[in-house]
């Protein structure tokens, strides 16, 4: 009986490992192609390279002006994350506790944003950014990032806030603490789990965003990583050996970050999404 129980997970584990190998193949292909000559890549796409060449990376690094674009990417992601966490947190709390009709109407207006294909609204948005003299600044992308993710984040946070016990806040208000004070001192710290899981999802969106930077960041010193990758795509001459390392450099920072943080990610999402 106990023998039988011990055996079953092994079979399961084996089949999961096979599945994992299949899932990992495209990423392996991406990585291994960067170390090959174009002829090798064409002859045996999945084989190991004969002689490992890392020179492709050095060239891609320089061509992309990597430190520059990495910094831009980082700044955009960082400030967007702060804004898209703090503002929706405050709003979600306000919406969850407000009893007035106007609060409910505003909530519907915000949630309606979830269903709109936002690409349609680019022209007025572009006009707006230009009128505010934000064109070609990282702020343009940051502000748009924050605004566009507000419906999603409010949607995510409000369920969590509603699940928080009211007693804590009530005792705080008896102690003479105002609503805003209570929010910052008591509620916000309690929201940490859901904030963590939202941050994970949002940082993916911000880091990998392409349309925003392409529209609003026009000079090369303001460009983000994907824009540099993109410069080398397209109709007029594509050089594999230079292009694949660029794609790798484009995805590497997030990949490494998520591999290191893997354990916390699952915990973070566990704490955040399930209470909802």
């Amino acid at each position: 009986m106990s023998m039988k129980k011990a055996q079953r997970p092994y079979l399961l584990e084996l089949s999961l490992i096979i599945l994992a190998v299949i899932v990992a193949l495209p990423i392996y292909y991406l990585l291994v192609t960067t170390l090959k000559t174009p002829e090798e890549a064409a002859a045996s796409p999945l084989g190991l390279p004969h002689h490992w060449t890392f020179g492709n990376y050095a060239e891609a690094w320089n061509m992309m002006r990597y430190p520059r674009v990495f910094t831009n990417n980082f700044i955009i992601t960082f400030f967007s994350l702060i804004g898209c966490t703090l503002l929706p947190c405050m709003a979600a709390y306000g919406f969850a506790r407000s009893r007035s009709l106007i609060g409910k109407l505003l909530f519907v207006a915000v949630i309606a944003g979830l269903v709109v294909p936002f690409q349609i609204a680019l022209i007025p948005l572009y006009k707006l950014i230009s009128t505010l003299h934000l064109m070609n600044t990282l702020w343009a992308v940051i502000i748009v990032n924050i605004s566009v993710t507000i419906p999603f984040n409010v949607f995510l946070f409000i369920n969590f806030v509603k699940s928080l016990p009211l007693e804590v806040e009530e005792s705080a208000s008896i102690d003479g603490s105002g609503v805003i004070g209570t929010f910052f001192r008591i509620v916000l710290p309690l929201m940490q789990p859901v904030v963590a899981s939202a941050a994970i999802l949002n940082s993916l969106t911000f880091w990998n965003d392409f349309m925003g930077p392409l529209l609003f960041l026009q000079t090369r010193d303001k460009a983000v990583i994907l824009q540099e990758v993109y410069r080398n795509i397209g109709q007029f001459s594509t050089n594999w050996t230079a292009f694949f390392p660029m794609m790798v450099l484009g995805v590497a920072p997030l990949l490494i970050f998520y591999i290191i943080m893997q354990k916390y990610i699952i915990k973070g999402i566990a704490a955040g999404s399930v209470k909802g």
């Binding site: 680019l122 007025p124 572009y126 392409l214 529209l215």
Partner: peptide, 18 residues
């Protein structure tokens, strides 16, 4: 800008007066 998105980008910008 690659031809695939060139018209999108250019026309958005021109229509916005930029």
């Amino acid at each position: 800008v690659d031809l695939k998105s060139f018209e999108n980008m250019l026309r958005t910008q021109l229509a916005a007066g930029e």
